[in-house]
Write a protein that binds this DNA or RNA. Sequence first.
DNA 1: AGTCCTTTGCAACAGTGTTGCAAAATATTT
DNA 2: AAATATTTTGCAACACTGTTGCAAAGGACT
Lengths: 141, 141
Amino acid sequence: MTREKDINQMLKDHGLSSTETRRTILGFFHAADKALAHADIETMGTVPLDRVTIYRTLQSFVEKGLLHSIPSADNAVRYALCKDHCADGHHHDNHVHFMCDQCSRTYCLDEITIPRIKLPLGFTACQTDLVVSGVCKTCQS
Amino acid sequence: MTREKDINQMLKDHGLSSTETRRTILGFFHAADKALAHADIETMGTVPLDRVTIYRTLQSFVEKGLLHSIPSADNAVRYALCKDHCADGHHHDNHVHFMCDQCSRTYCLDEITIPRIKLPLGFTACQTDLVVSGVCKTCQS
DNA sequence: AGTCCTTTGCAACAGTGTTGCAAAATATTT
DNA sequence: AAATATTTTGCAACACTGTTGCAAAGGACT
């Protein structure tokens, strides 16, 4: 399978050794068109994955620039694939996130860039997160 | 004391009976120039407050429009006083929040309004949260 | 294949938030 | 002001989220 090979390559490109759990979890993210939380991943596979391993996998994926985390008001951090990578690997996403109040799906709106914010004197920005919540395209019937 | 009386009035104006814990917690928010998390409140008073009571108090304050909650990437929801209230009580804040990476202080930048975001077709916005993180005016030395 | 290093899985723990229920405090009525 | 009704508190217990340490298993490399 080409996808298998792609996932393998993706891990190695980011300096991660290719293990079964990592391939599985990265596969979940490629299959899903939405952001995933730890709890989602725990129940997604046919064989249940170890909780701790998932935490550590997500952590290393974020560190190596494969995933980015999305803050939320409901205290459940979600993760999504990083689509564009800078050369240095350390890459700050700058797109808007959308979270559906009805189905809890979280989307990366890659095409919408966060506008530049002018901070008061004395404040220096490092990262900016913009999360819009409401009703998503699937729930809008 | 006038402040005591103000706090009392504030509670009643929002349809909450005036109890000692509520007066204490509301007092904390008036004294602080920053957003407070549950953990902060737990250790602030001379007499320790019950954890559950704090949760319930914060909840009712948010429901009645006294406080608003601020999402964060570090999974610790913070709360801050609502400064302007609509007539109906149900009031959506629309200002930018700033969180310091060094001291973890969270500020409401009331003077900066969140720019309007144009969502893709099919998405309807209900609330928009914008959190900037970096170095605050106090840590900037 | 053998060695080295990383990752996994388990147990245990710490923090965050919720629920149920009896006792206490507040509000309301007389 | 006392009695009653209602709300809030504090405790115990629980569920969920996330972390750490350590021995065993798995990948990487020569």
